[in-house]
């Protein structure tokens, strides 16, 4: 029982981190699903959204700052659609991907220029002190961080909302049609530009939520943008087009890397969790190239 306590703690801690990875991965999936663009700028959007919120909240009431940040993220989506995507309609996916790398550099630099490069504290009123569960069963109990639980709850709600949006609304169906073929969707009267604006705005709002969850945990600073790199193995694992895939992928990566760091790390010098996620994802690629939940695409040549 004494050994089981730490194991459960590590798994639980890992799953909670995994939910946070999933939150970032969701933004990627959303845009890929609806526009076929692999948006490398999702991490930069997380940073930009969180920075905007935390700096605006310094001189505005929090709800107002939150609403204003949503407006800012919609404006960012509009600018990306207008200045980057629209001129590239019909281009190969790789070109669009490269364009989003450019957007990443721009947003990273622009965000830090207007909002600053310090670490900003984002206090959402969640207690930082841990909860200890099952103290009667395990010595010292099982440690759970309230911030992680809060983030998990938010992520859960978001996934539910997005699933309903994609499957049960007219816009959701239009988004899926656009993802399959831009030009065909346009030819049946789906307004491509408006759809792209909607999906990039939604991704911006998801980025804001992810930024709030990560920012309340780590403080709002540049490293939030690097968290996007954590979402990549999650996407490889879960598949680029599946919302449940992002969640399950996130959970596997989160729990897997923490377990590896805790149990294997000390014997090989430690610091392995960063690359372990990629090893895990590569292993999945060998067996299922489309990821655990991704769509198998068969193309005639």
């Amino acid at each position: 029982m004494a050994e089981l306590g730490p194991l459960l703690e590590v798994v639980l801690g890992g799953l909670m981190s995994g939910v946070l990875y999933a939150l970032v991965a969701l933004g990627f999936v959303l845009i890929f699903k609806a526009s076929g663009v692999f948006n490398f700028a999702q991490g930069a959007m997380v940073l930009f959204a969180a920075l905007s919120l935390v700096r605006l909240a310094e001189w505005l009431p929090f709800p107002l700052a939150f609403l204003l940040t949503i407006v800012i993220m919609i404006a960012v989506a509009w600018a990306i659609e207008r200045l980057v995507l629209r001129p590239l309609v019909g281009q190969h996916g790789l070109i669009l991907f490269m364009a989003t790398i450019g957007v990443t550099f721009f947003l990273d630099g622009f965000g830090q220029t207007i909002w600053g490069s310090n670490v900003y504290q984002l206090d959402l009123g969640i207690p930082a002190s841990p909860w200890f569960l099952l103290e009667s069963l395990f010595p010292g109990g099982i440690l759970v961080s309230p911030i992680d639980v809060f983030a998990a709850a938010i992520a859960g709600a978001l996934v539910l909302a997005l699933s309903i949006f994609f499957h049960s609304t007219k816009i959701g169906r239009a988004l899926r049609a656009v993802a399959d073929d831009h030009q065909a969707a346009q030819s049946v009267g789906i307004p491509l530009n408006r759809i792209w604006l909607i999906v990039w705005s939604t991704a911006g709002i998801v980025a804001l939520v992810a930024g709030m969850a990560w920012g309340s945990k780590l403080g709002v600073q540049f490293s939030l943008s690097l968290i996007a790199l954590k979402a990549l193995p999650v996407l490889i694992l879960g598949g680029l087009t599946s919302i449940p895939g992002a969640i399950v992928g996130g959970l596997i990566v989160g729990a897997g890397e923490k377990l590896a760091e805790f149990y294997i790390g000390p014997s090989i010098g430690g610091g392995i969790e960063y690359w372990f996620a990629y090893v895990l994802a590569l292993a999945v690629l060998l067996v299922r190239p489309q990821g655990l939940f991704g769509e198998k695409i068969i193309e005639r040549v």
């Binding site: 730490p6 703690e9 590590v10 801690g13 890992g14 981190s17 440690l143 780590l218 540049f222 490293s223 690097l226 968290i227 890397e257 923490k258 760091e261 805790f262 790390g265 610091g271 969790e273 960063y274």
Partner: peptide, 12 residues
């Protein structure tokens, strides 16, 4: 590992 935002396993 850089940048140092992943420390959960270390602190557990």
């Amino acid at each position: 590992t850089h940048p140092g935002v992943e420390q959960k396993a270390a602190w557990l």
